[in-house]
Design a protein around this nucleic acid. Structure first.
Lengths: 192, 192
DNA sequence: TAGCTTCCCTATCAAATGATAGGGAGCGGG
DNA sequence: CCCGCTCCCTATCATTTGATAGGGAAGCTA
């Protein structure tokens, strides 16, 4: 049976190093050292360095892509649907032992070799922009370019992730709600 | 006399590649190719690769650090001082021919060798948190951890930079004002 | 013209780094 | 007992990449 501990530990340590140094700057030797194994042993658990970051990425993006698309198609106020999605997203990410902000803030996605992942992310962004457009059309959000809205939601999500990685989180759900509230504040029209 | 054109072109092309690929993933050969010179010719204008990113970084941070500190010490509502600073910052960055978001979103700063730059940025963040604290104390801003406030201001600034780099900017001052408005919306209390 | 400076070139190096080859220890099943 | 599997090791390779050495052309000054 494959030891799941070492594999999981690789993901955790790699994500922290990716966050601290970036993907390219993090060597497989550093990852191995953090896991207390030798460098070639990494390749028993993952075929290559790329596969490590791909797995971390999939952990966060696969389900998120489905959920944001569902949120797009449901009925009801767009602001509520976006809020619900953000609460789920933040609480999920906050619970993960990996430093998930590493994936989005880092350099991994920018590389040519990660075109497939970048495409997934692009589709995700498309749904997010769609949802924001719905909110703008219904008058719930201020009138901004949906692309700018998407950039703001994404960057504030990452900011909140980075925040939660710094402080000790006692209640992931509560801090996720507060984060979602804060993100929506940025472009929700004042309620009168 | 040193040709300023090539030097400037190196900064511009390098910043775009840093944005697209990240600092570590961008090779000096790629930069040279974008500038239409050979790789070793780069080292006539800059002592090493690090110096290129340092110069781009200094362009944006040196004056910003002074201005944010001044904003901290001036009188008047904190929200107005922060707004003024943000308008200056965004309009300055939007006018630069370099892709300035490359510096903040990229992996360069994370590296050990850029500890000096990271320290500068840390001092800048300290002033920003101070200013946000003032606004929270005076009741202008919602009660959040100043660190979270700082992360949000920084990430939204970058989001706005990335936005302006995508669309064609006709009036940098106007888009800077709109950006500053949007950033402050995120945590300014509703005005009654 | 001679001499100096600027700027770019070709050729080349040394180090870092992702990945492979192949061996050995531990362990469980038959 | 031995086969096969898992998991880690040492040794090593091939490539990439930042940087250096040294030369040559163009332009300016005296």
């Amino acid at each position: 049976m494959e030891t799941v501990d070492t594999r999981q530990e690789i993901l955790i340590q790699a994500s922290r190093l990716f966050k601290k140094l970036g993907y390219r700057a993090t060597t497989t030797r550093e990852i191995a050292k953090a896991v207390n194994i030798k460098q070639p042993s990494l390749f028993h658990h993952f075929p290559n360095k790329k596969a490590i970051v791909e797995e971390i990425f999939s952990l966060s993006l696969n389900e998120a892509a489905v959920r944001i698309e569902e949120a797009c198609r449901r009925d009801g106020p767009a602001s509520e649907r976006l809020h619900q999605y953000l609460v789920w997203d933040l609480s999920t990410l906050h619970r993960m032992p990996m430093a998930m902000s590493a994936i989005y803030t880092g350099d991994a996605l920018k590389s040519e070799e990660f075109a497939e992942l970048a495409a997934k992310l692009k589709a995700f962004y498309h749904s997010l922009e769609d949802l924001i457009s719905q909110g703008i059309d219904s008058g719930e959000f201020v009138e901004i370019d949906p692309m700018l809205g998407r950039l703001i939601v994404a960057s504030m999500t990452i900011a909140h992730l980075e925040y939660a990685e710094e402080v000790t989180v006692t209640d992931p759900d509560r801090i996720a709600r507060e984060g979602a509230d804060l993100i929506l504040r940025a472009f929700r029209r004042e309620q009168n």
